[in-house]
């Protein structure tokens, strides 16, 4: 079974820095046009079907704005 993942974004914590976008190996994420209450453009999953829950985005996020979920065969959480 193919590993599937999902990234939840906490919009009020995201500052739109783009580090997750730059490091996502499957180009799942992009900055949306939507802004949060602080005026930051927030990140969104633009290709959710590509996410395998690798957690790289969450590792690079300086604001702990991302929570990664995973299903299927997988190694332990990083």
């Amino acid at each position: 079974m193919r590993i599937k993942g999902r990234v939840d974004v906490e919009p009020e914590l995201c500052k739109g820095c783009g580090l997750c976008v730059a490091f996502c190996p499957r180009k799942v994420l992009a900055l949306a046009d939507e802004v949060n209450s602080k005026g930051y453009r927030i990140v969104a999953q633009v290709k959710p079907e590509e996410c395998n829950g690798c957690t790289i985005c969450a590792q690079m996020c300086p604001d702990i704005a991302l929570t990664v979920w995973r299903s299927g065969r997988s190694k332990e959480a990083v």
């Binding site: 599937k4 009020e12 829950g53 969450a58 604001d63 702990i64 929570t67 990664v68 995973r70 299903s71």
Partner: peptide, 18 residues
């Protein structure tokens, strides 16, 4: 799906000001 990343317990809920 199961959650594979989480905020460490050694951090409070205050958002970083950085």
């Amino acid at each position: 799906m199961r959650q594979v990343t989480a905020k460490p317990k050694a951090l409070t809920n205050a958002p970083f000001h950085y």
